[in-house]
Design a protein around this nucleic acid. Structure first.
Lengths: 228, 228
DNA sequence: TAGTCCATATCGCAA
DNA sequence: TTGCGATGTGGACTA
């Protein structure tokens, strides 16, 4: 890992072209050759970068200024014209042991599988990841009247999720084993549902359910076993 | 901008919980208080981070080790336990003049709005960003016969774009003002269209148009004004 | 390898 | 501010 602070001008040409005027920035050069150009603001996304695999070549322009050329796998190139180097240091970091995560969509599905009644009164689980020809339905349930209910779970409820559930319902409603007592209903469950997605869902007779993740976790006796 | 290289352990708790075991990493602390934890690989995304606005507090644990606590706007917290500092430097970067981009979807839409006939002979523009209940249609046009044509523009033509255009067409074809002379047609325009998207589009009677960005830019008399 | 879906997404624009 | 779509999306998983 090499860290450089320099007054520089950056030009990228690849899927798009982008230009950064001359200013002081941080250049991070990773062991795999990838380069990140950061300013003193924004968020974690660099102003400009080159993803690995790529190669950095240090050269100079006709008028003797330092110029880095980073070449990517395709035609991507990142040109960094350096006017003044304010800091330059290299560090051996070794291999990173990696990140452990908890609390993504899979976990939400586990919690709802344990507590399906929070989605609709009297709802009981038939099975998780119920298989269909076009992919698994997150939860297949049965309501108080014994009718089949397909549940699609998303962390954020957007229009794509409604389309997905619609495709599932279309398929499920061709199966006489499921539709014996009546058509399969759909429930679209998410921590937040966008207005457009809600309109589309309701237009298609799909019920929307906003899920309170913290409340669900509170209901789960084993919640503490998942913490680090 | 402060750059620290240190052996550290990182724990994040917010929308999810995440844990990084003790290892040597780069910590980037920006002027707005945001913190990035980078390893010597991966891509531009840090292993862990805290987005602005946030506040960093340097403290120490009961056993005297250095611990940073970064607190975000909501309940987000990032705890960095530091075992050994290998490098620590601060730099004044000033305000960045910002990034200039060229070649994104918006620009493509401008060019096609100026030259709709490249999509189909005799096509003329009615208006850009034509409003519907579920969002704006990129270009609403009229063909040589006076029939309405909805154009959806994507940089990359994938299946989502076809779904989007299908929804627009469904809605537009309920409007007697547009369908007076016949049903509204759809054109799916992109720099490259994936095979699956093409199949779906043609199955729905949507015309696919592959757009040559460079050729379009060449037709545009004012193109040079957009260059740097 | 190509398709699909998630993300602590981030970012920019507009209502 | 919130909603919404684009992103040089990236990354993981699957068939």
């Amino acid at each position: 890992m090499r860290l450089v602070v320099a007054r520089c001008q950056v030009d990228y040409a690849g899927r798009l072209t982008a230009h950064l005027p001359m200013a002081t920035r941080v250049l991070m050069i990773k062991a795999d050759g990838s380069v990140l150009v950061h300013s003193d603001g924004g968020s974690y996304k660099p102003l400009n970068w080159m993803s690995p695999p790529c190669a950095l070549r240090e050269g100079s322009t006709e008028d003797g200024r330092v110029e880095w050329t980073v070449t990517g796998k395709t035609d991507d190139t990142l040109r960094i014209l350096i006017e003044e180097v304010l800091h330059d240091s290299s560090h051996d970091l070794g291999v990173d042991p990696g990140l452990q995560k908890d609390g993504v969509e899979k976990h939400l599905q586990e919690l709802l599988a344990e507590h399906p009644a929070t989605l609709a009164d009297g709802l009981t689980l038939v099975r998780r990841e119920f298989p269909t020809a076009i992919g698994p339905v997150d939860l297949m349930c049965r309501d108080a009247e014994g009718l089949s209910v397909a549940v699609e779970i998303k962390r954020r409820g957007e229009i794509d999720g409604v389309e997905q559930l619609t495709r599932y319902l279309e398929l499920l409603n061709r199966d006489p084993l499921l539709t014996g007592r009546g058509a399969v209903r759909g429930i679209f469950a998410a921590q937040a549902i966008k207005p457009q997605a809600r309109v589309l869902a309701e237009d298609r007779g799909i019920t929307c359910a906003v899920v309170d993740y913290d409340a669900l976790r509170g209901m789960d006796d084993d919640a503490e076993h998942r913490l680090f």
